[in-house]
């Protein structure tokens, strides 16, 4: 069972050119911040390396950070055999959000990424089937969970606000 610093050490040894850092100043857990375009290589290593064995993706969530004009994705990983956990965060530009998919590594990510696309507009590169999942397929009024979202007045003849 390893803690966050040891996991960071192992990742830095195997990916020397990557820009990885650990943010530990806020409650409650430490967050590993990684570059958005490398998350697929990092995920494959995290799942297959014999010291880490992160075989289960607990959660994948999108976050809108309006002040820094970024869209971030948080990954919560867990190892069922070695019993350790880690939180990873990647960020991408709000006007052109693109992150490689991890659904080849953990199939659990498939629908979570579709939901992040549906509600935030984050495009996941190489996703097998990226379309809206919760909102109607012909919803063209934007991405609802963004902080600057505004409600449309009518949808297919029905009045949306109260």
């Amino acid at each position: 069972m390893k803690n966050a610093e040891e996991i960071l050490q192992i990742l830095k040894e195997n990916f020397p050119e990557s820009n990885l850092e650990l943010k530990t100043d806020q409650p409650t857990e430490a967050v590993l911040i990684a570059a958005s375009l490398e998350i697929d290589k990092l995920s494959l290593f995290l799942r297959d390396s014999s010291e880490l064995l992160f075989d289960s993706l607990m959660n994948l969530s999108g976050v809108d950070e309006l002040k820094e004009s970024l869209l971030s994705v948080y990954y919560h990983l867990e190892s069922t055999s070695l019993k350790h956990k880690i939180t990873i965060k990647v960020s991408t530009d709000r006007n052109k959000p693109e992150i490689p998919t991890v659904s080849e590594v953990w199939k659990a990510a498939d629908w979570h990424e579709r939901e992040a696309y549906d509600l935030f507009g984050i495009i996941f590169l190489n996703h097998p089937d990226l379309r809206r999942i919760l909102m109607p397929y012909d919803w063209d009024a934007g991405y609802p969970l963004r902080k600057d979202y505004e409600n449309p007045e009518f949808y297919q003849g029905m009045k949306v606000p109260y």
Partner: peptide, 8 residues
């Protein structure tokens, strides 16, 4: 406080 938590 400013921060984040994941609990299950």
């Amino acid at each position: 406080p400013v921060g984040h938590v994941y609990a299950r």
